Amino acid sequence: MSASSLTRRSLIGAAALLGLGGSRAFAQGFAGLGRDAEGFAAVVPGRPLTFPADHGPHPDYRIEWWYLTANLTDASGNAYGAQWTLFRQAMAAGAQGDGWATPQIWMGHAAVTSMTAHHAAENFARGGISQAGVTTTPFRAWIDAWEMRGLENFDDRSVAPLDVSASSADFSYGLRLDAKQPLVLQGENGFSRKSERGQASYYYSQPYFTASGVLTIDGKEIAVTGHAWMDREYSSQPLASDQTGWDWFSLHLPDNAKLMLFRLRQKDGAHYFAGNWITADGKSEQLAPGAIDMTPTVMTEIAGRRIPTSWKVSIASRGLQIATSPLNARSWMTTSFPYWEGPVSFTGSHSGTGYLEMTGY
C-alpha cells in the first residue's frame, strides 16, 4: 500500500490494526506507548547490545524503529532536511505466526523539508508477507519501495555505507551515507531510561554519517550534501502511563561532537530529562537529568495545536547555552499519529544544525 493510494478509511484501519486508535492512544501517552507491556520482553540494564544482530528486528518487544534524519544543503547554501523511518509494532505478545498470522505491523514515514515547504508520506505493511522487514546480512530495511540498504564493504560497527531512498507524489530522494566512526550507545551503555518508574529502551545511534545525493521536490532535482543521524531504539513500554509525549533533539556540534537530548512530558509537570554528550572520538557520556535545561521560547499554531518550535537549551556542566530555530516552523507530519519533525539550526556558545522531534501535542 503506497502513501499516494492511502484513503482515510485505510489510515483508520491501519491505526486500528496497530491497536493505537484515536483518543485511547493519547489517553495512554503518544500513540499508546504508555500501555502495559505484560507478555512482551522487558528492557533491563546490563544487557549488552551485539551486532549485527541488534541491527535487525526484535519481535519479542512491542515496538522499535530505524530512524534517519539528515541536514542537507545545495550548491547555493540553501538548507533542506530529509527523514526516513521504519517502525515495527507487535499487536500481541507471545508466539509468532507465519504469513498473515503474524502479529507484526510495519509503518514507514518519509519527509523532505525546505524553508518554504514540508512534504510527508506514510506507508503501512503487514509483517510475514515480505512487504516490509529488516535483514542483517546483508543489511536491508524496507517497506514497499522505500529502502535503507547496505552497500559494498558494509561495516556492522558503523552501519555504513548505506543507500537510502523514498518517494511519494510530491518528493523523492536518494542518499548515500558514509561513516568513518563506529556507532555509539545512548543512555548507559545502550540502556536508555525514560522514567524513574522503570520505563526504558535499548538505544544506539550512528550520528557521524556524511550524506550526499539528490532530492526531488515538485519535479525539481536538487543535488545535496550534509550530515545525517540514525537512531535505533526498541522497547516494550517506552513511556509511563502519565507521560504524554516527548521533545527530542539530535545536534551536530562544532568539531564533530554530537548531542542527544530529550524531555519526556509528564502530566504533573515533573518532566523527565535525559541525554548523551558524544565527543568527536566517539565517547558517549550520559548527562544527569538535572544538568539539562530545555525551555520553549516560540509557540507556533499548527493544526489546532500550539507547538514549541524554538527553544533555549542549556547544559551548564558543558558550557553549552544555545537558542534553536526551525528551518520551517510548520514541519508537521500529517501521518496517522501526527507529530512535529524537522531540521533546526542553533547559535550561542555553540553553533550548528540538527533535528527536533516533538510528539503528543
Rank of each mutant, 00 (worst) to 15 (best):
R176E: 07
N189P: 09
Q237P: 04
L177I: 01
H252P: 01
R47K: 15
W229T: 05
L68G: 04
F209I: 01
L20H: 10
E38R: 13
D54I: 11
Y361K: 12
Y202C: 06
P296Q: 04
L18S: 06
H58A: 13
P338T: 00
Y203M: 10
Q104G: 00
A16C: 08
S349R: 05
G354E: 01
P207Q: 02
S331P: 05
S2M: 13
N328V: 08
E301T: 14
G128L: 00
S23N: 14
F337L: 14
D54M: 08
E341L: 15
T244V: 14
Q131A: 14
K283F: 06
L49A: 14
V164Y: 06
D170G: 04
I222H: 12
W311R: 14
A16W: 15
A120K: 07
T347W: 02
F139M: 09
T353W: 10
Q237E: 09
R62Q: 00
T297N: 04
A132R: 07
R232G: 10
V112A: 07
W229Y: 08
D178Y: 08
L72D: 01
M230Q: 15
P57R: 08
W277H: 08
R197A: 10
F26Q: 00
S158L: 02
R306H: 06
D242Q: 13
T353P: 02
H118L: 04
F171T: 03
L175H: 09
F30E: 06
S76K: 13
W142K: 06
D156S: 11
G99H: 09
Y208H: 04
G187T: 08
S195N: 09
L259F: 05
F209W: 10
L68I: 09
L177D: 03
Q131G: 15
A92R: 10
A31Y: 07
S284W: 08
G22N: 10
F346K: 03
P343S: 13
R62N: 00
L356R: 07
R149F: 01
L253G: 07
A120H: 08
A90Y: 04
D170R: 04
L151A: 14
N276M: 10
A316W: 13
P52K: 05
F262H: 00
Q131V: 03
S114A: 15
E188R: 14
R88C: 05
E64S: 09
G13A: 09
V344P: 02
F191N: 04
A228E: 01
G127P: 03
A14K: 10
T102Y: 11
P207C: 01
P308K: 02
N78L: 12
M1H: 10
L327G: 04
P161V: 06
H119V: 09
M148V: 14
G128D: 04
G198E: 05
I143E: 06
A145G: 11
D247K: 03
I217V: 12
D293V: 12
G304S: 03
W84F: 13
R126L: 15
R47T: 15
S331T: 12
A274D: 15
Y202E: 13
G352D: 01
W248R: 11
